[in-house]
Design a protein around this nucleic acid. Structure first.
Lengths: 286, 286
DNA sequence: CGATCGTTTGACGGTGCTCAATCACCGTGG
DNA sequence: CCACGGTGATTGAGCACCGTCAAACGATCG
């Protein structure tokens, strides 16, 4: 059964709107709606072919689209809103894998095992299209535009998870945060929204899980970046003041293989960033 | 140094051993070979349909299949051998994203941008099948078996990168290593090889990059795991002595919610592991 | 207003990163 | 055969960064 059960992650839910049954195949959406969502370039002449009903579903903030371990009945495309995907450890710790937004795909990694390796929860009121796995190949064959869009969406998702590794690989916590902000900025730009000013809908704790640090460290990281005048932070609103500086700062890696490369000062305007803090990190080249 | 061997016969190969029938369309590989590689369940009756030539290529250890930033001409399937995929930072630091083995897909994350976001290098003498991106959709439509196998392979790759996040998310370095070993063991089992005894072909440094730690820490981590009698390590050969113990240990997330759980003799034989002393294996029973 | 959750800030202790030396292994060439 | 350099793996020492614990602060809601 695909009933949405609220996870008691240690907090008894105060959200009464949980058990409001959201029917799967509601509101008579059409396949053309999905194609329109996925392809920025409108493919004309297909209206007749693709004007068939399609599954869609609405979720409220906090609703679970699918649970970790659940059978993979369908894959989903985010129509509006946003989701977080995460794994839950035995002790209840949530490892956030990613944040999924409009026109992106959800649940594709379940196809290889027929079980979802992670859960997906709406971070705000959202809606999705669903494509049953058994219809997937047939649909792709019948509608090349869908097939192409699917490949693109999955490829993008794969790339996102590659980026995640790059984020979590950074040594310093502030660098992880900086990389995350740069990536988010890029995604916002790709979505046609402002890359300099945006709202991070996830909580500090979710962000921290995604970055692989403690949530207190995220707060401290924001403070460091703000003190360096790279960003301005007000609650969950973020404004990037110095994009180049932020990018330069986010390039800091582990001990460089080539020591000389570090010596060439190049553009190390972020040296001031470290020195500003109470403790000077690894005495900087004078 | 890293000589890139190009596919098409148009480019003069740098590698001398290339010109002998291992150019792009060399050695008369057939599409049926690729299908046989990808599908464990043999799909019969397609022989005639799929008996057409297909691109294939051989690489020696250290050869680059594609470079980060290169145009995405094709996606690849590993026929034999194994590869590492990695991003190179400006300072030369290599962030290893994953290790790709037989029947797995390479380069799919390049489709969304037409540029490879990472490089792929053979970790041993290897061979791959290649499918040009422009033929991808047509091939999938013509040969459903291929389409299905592609979906499966990509889904698996996506799941692998999800696992990567779980590995890198672990706080303790030894736990990351343990998780990595468990995952590798699972992959070896899926490949039909021994899940208890295998050879890790990557260097300590590559492993460290993949885990997000310093390479010295990997050495120390192996030592800890060996002292706990969970594994036996000889250079790059690994033997898992206590699979259950290793899995239990790899479940440790960031600071267990309750310290008491560690004290409770229940399922925490690894409590002794932290103590540092060469612990007697199943010490705690009473 | 009280309650609850999210966020911030402080203090402390531990872990892993850095630096560095040593050993093991390998192919080369004397 | 051993000397030689080169690479990779291991081990040690020091200390700074971050995770943990704790408390104060702010926001939202009923």
């Amino acid at each position: 059964m695909d009933k949405v059960i609220h996870f008691s992650g240690g907090s008894p839910s105060i959200n009464g709107s949980q058990h409001r049954a959201s029917a799967f195949a509601g509101e008579g959406s059409r396949l053309s709606d999905l194609l329109h969502l996925l392809s920025s370039t409108e493919a004309p002449g297909l209206a007749a072919l693709v004007d068939e009903p399609i599954l869609s579903r609405r979720l409220h903030e906090g609703d679970t689209l699918f649970h970790e371990g659940a059978r993979a009945d369908a894959i989903y495309f985010v129509r509006s809103g946003s989701f977080k995907t995460f794994c839950t450890a035995e002790d209840g710790y949530e490892q956030v894998l990613g944040f999924v937004g409009r026109a992106e795909v959800l649940g594709f990694d379940a196809l290889c095992t027929n079980r979802h390796p992670n859960s997906a929860v709406a971070m705000e009121d959202s809606s999705v299209f669903g494509v049953p796995v058994r219809d997937l190949s047939a649909l792709g064959r019948r509608v090349p535009a869908f097939d192409h869009a699917l490949v693109l969406a999955v490829s993008r998702e794969l790339a996102h998870r590659g980026d995640l590794a790059n984020v979590m690989a950074a040594v310093a916590a502030e660098v992880r945060l900086a990389r995350f902000l740069v990536q988010w900025s890029t995604r916002m730009a790709a979505r046609g929204q402002s890359p300099r000013r945006f709202v991070l809908r996830m909580s500090r704790r979710e962000m921290a899980s995604h970055l692989g640090v403690a949530h207190e460290t995220v707060s401290r990281g924001f403070r460091v970046l703000a003190n360096a005048a790279l960003v301005k932070v007000c609650n969950r609103e973020v404004e990037i003041l110095d994009m180049d500086g932020l990018k330069a700062f986010s390039c800091s890696t582990r001990r460089p293989i080539d020591e000389d490369a570090a010596a060439s000062a190049g553009h190390s305007q972020h040296a001031a960033l470290w020195s500003g803090a109470p403790a000077t990190r690894h005495a900087e080249a004078a």
